[in-house]
């Protein structure tokens, strides 16, 4: 949360205080300049690290120290992306592949998240259900679920449904365990207070337990979207007519490491965008929380 990290000498106008009196703004120009210079330094070093890595790789290939046939090369990846964008890929237009994978991942993500939240909170609230289903869920969670992908292809065919199903299964457990734990950790004092004030069971669930568990649930969303992407891509890998996973397996089949890497770059961009969207959602849903303490690394 870099935006919340305010230097101790900078008192930002607090909307709460602004109601009653003008905000006190104390800015230490020296500290601000020092902070800006530091951020610049960090970014310059980052660029250097990236440049040296990619440049070294490229150079290694060109001087013959690295075999481009096996590991590809940065310029090859770039031109591969360009070719795909301009002339389409071997399995169809690039945009279609991205859209198909994204659709599968998002659908699986949405279904898995909703199912995980509902199941987690229900089992967290109803002790009997938790006791009955606890062992089953543990067993299901302990098997490597990625293997289910093969079964789903047998069940649902080569279309998107088998990929969605795999994404759902991967997302569900991540969200479920967090929702369950979040429900169990709810402050008993808050529940007692709400009940005395007149809250019925469903009020407690929706207005006390759910918001309290949301901190946990949202934490799980960050990893779950990654799982949804993995589910979609592995599913496509196992058998599909379209999608980035198919593109990867096609590139693999034609000994084209640049193609595999180019697909990876696209997936990374998608994942980063999703991560940004989830962080935005987090900030909106959890706006009631006190801001993190500002200051240097503790």
């Amino acid at each position: 949360m870099s935006s919340a990290a305010v230097h101790p000498f900078t008192v930002e106008p607090d909307p709460a205080v602004a109601l009653t009196r003008p905000p006190v703004v104390v800015v230490d120009p020296v500290a601000v300049r020092r902070q800006r210079r530091r951020r610049l330094l960090v970014n310059v070093i980052r660029l250097l690290v990236l440049g040296v890595t990619l440049g070294g790789w490229e150079l290694g290939v060109r001087t013959g120290h690295i075999d481009a046939f096996f590991v590809g090369q940065p310029s090859g990846v770039a031109s591969q992306l360009k070719t795909w964008a301009q002339h389409g890929t071997e399995v169809g237009p690039l945009w279609t592949q991205v859209r198909v994978t994204l659709q599968e991942a998002l659908t699986g993500f949405a279904i898995g998240v909703v199912a995980g939240i509902v199941a987690g909170i229900t089992l967290g609230r109803v002790r009997l259900l938790a006791e009955v289903f606890g062992p089953f869920i543990k067993v299901l969670n302990s098997i490597p679920r990625i293997v289910l992908g093969s079964i789903f292809i047998l069940w649902f065919g080569l279309g998107p449904s088998s990929k969605v199903a795999l994404a759902v299964v991967l997302v569900f457990f991540a969200v479920f365990f967090n929702a369950f734990q979040g429900t169990r950790e709810v402050d008993r004092n808050l529940v007692a207070n709400a009940r005395i004030l007149g809250a019925k069971r469903r009020h407690v669930t929706m207005q006390v337990v759910l918001p309290s568990a949301l901190t946990w649930i949202i934490a799980s969303l960050h990893v779950s979207f990654g799982f949804a992407l993995i589910g979609a891509i592995v599913g496509e890998f196992l058998g599909a007519q379209q999608g980035l996973g198919l593109l990867i397996s096609h590139s693999q089949g034609t000994f084209n490491p640049n193609g595999v890497l180019a697909a990876m770059v696209i997936i990374a961009v998608v994942a980063l965008l999703a991560e940004g969207a989830i962080s935005l959602l987090e900030r909106r849903l959890l706006s009631w929380r006190p801001p993190q303490l500002s200051g240097a690394d503790l």
């Binding site: 402050d187 004092n189 808050l190 007692a192 207070n193 709400a194 006390v208 009631w288």
Partner: peptide, 12 residues
């Protein structure tokens, strides 16, 4: 019941 510890709902 006014509780010993804070029990107002922080998200409301």
């Amino acid at each position: 019941f006014v509780f010993q510890n804070d029990a107002v709902l922080p998200w409301k």
